[in-house]
């Protein structure tokens, strides 16, 4: 690990949280963990408390969707998970990944970065490289516990990251103060969480759409059971992608979105 990268300390994080205007919650700072989501899940089972936060320098088993690995080398990235209060309406929990994406994008923008959101919640830099990802897990049916995990490539160079990924420093420059960034993400998620409970999904959807990539453009979505092509219209009340296809409008809850390359010469 580069010597210039001090390990996080809980006290420093608490201070950063206060400065960012976050509601303080219990904090666990670790050098190495299997996955911050897993750590928070174990902690939650014995009563971590609302807005408990886990931050790690390195994950040995960082996870993406459907069992995929999330490359989590040490040396300047951010791996954090937080435990919001239980959502009042579990059926609308699918909005949370988009809410977390908006909060994380705003935190990155506050650090001077330009960020685009690829539906539903991938954070892309100006070159199209992936700066980070968000994995939200809910456990249970009637009253699920929700864990929001955020992985951000802050300083680790792209050569050490997964293919298609790049660091915040490479994409946007800046010194990438990780504690300040982490605190801004937490404060942002908390603020949007309150906004969601007060005003519903509409303000979140608007903030999401302001950063959304490919709105109004021809896109391709590889869904679990089919591939759809159409014009991206935006998102609906649940956060589903609205797509204008030849057969009419379709809404999609899951799929890998890409910009459709127009057929033609070249």
């Amino acid at each position: 690990m580069p010597e210039s990268q001090p390990i996080f300390d809980a006290q420093g994080l608490q201070g950063a949280l206060v400065r960012a205007g976050a509601r303080p919650g219990p904090v666990r700072v670790l050098e190495t963990v299997d996955s911050t989501n897993e750590e928070l899940r174990r902690w939650g089972q014995v009563g971590a408390g609302d807005w408990a936060l886990v931050l790690a320098e390195r994950q040995t088993a960082g996870r993406g969707r459907r069992g995929r690995r999330w490359s989590s080398p040490p040396g300047g990235n951010l791996y954090l998970s937080m435990l919001p209060p239980k959502p009042a309406t579990p059926s609308t929990a699918s909005r949370i990944p988009l809410l977390a994406a908006v909060a994380t994008a705003e935190a990155l923008e506050a650090e001077g970065a330009a960020v685009g959101l690829k539906w539903p919640n991938d954070l892309l830099g100006p070159s199209g490289a992936k700066l980070g990802g968000i994995l939200v897990e809910a456990i249970g049916i009637s009253s699920p516990s929700v864990i929001i995990g955020v992985g951000l490539n802050v300083k680790v160079p792209s050569g050490e990251l997964a293919e298609g990924a790049a660091s915040l420093q490479e994409e946007s420059g800046g010194n990438g103060d990780r504690l300040r960034l982490a605190a801004r993400i937490v404060a942002g998620v908390q603020a949007w969480w309150q906004e969601l409970s007060r005003k519903g999904f509409s303000p979140v959807a608007t903030a999401w759409a302001q950063r959304a990539l490919w709105l109004g453009q021809r896109v391709r979505v590889m869904c679990p059971s089919q591939t759809l092509v159409g014009e991206m219209r935006g998102i609906d009340e649940q956060g589903c992608l609205r797509l204008a296809t030849r057969e009419g409008e379709r809404t999609v809850a899951n799929g890998e979105l890409s910009l459709r390359l127009e057929e033609g010469p070249g």
Binding site: N121, E137, A138, I139
Partner: peptide
């Protein structure tokens, strides 16, 4: 169940 990259584990009640 996955939706919008939220994974909801269906636990037996």
């Amino acid at each position: 169940i996955e939706a919008m990259k939220l994974f909801n584990e269906i636990e037996s009640e």
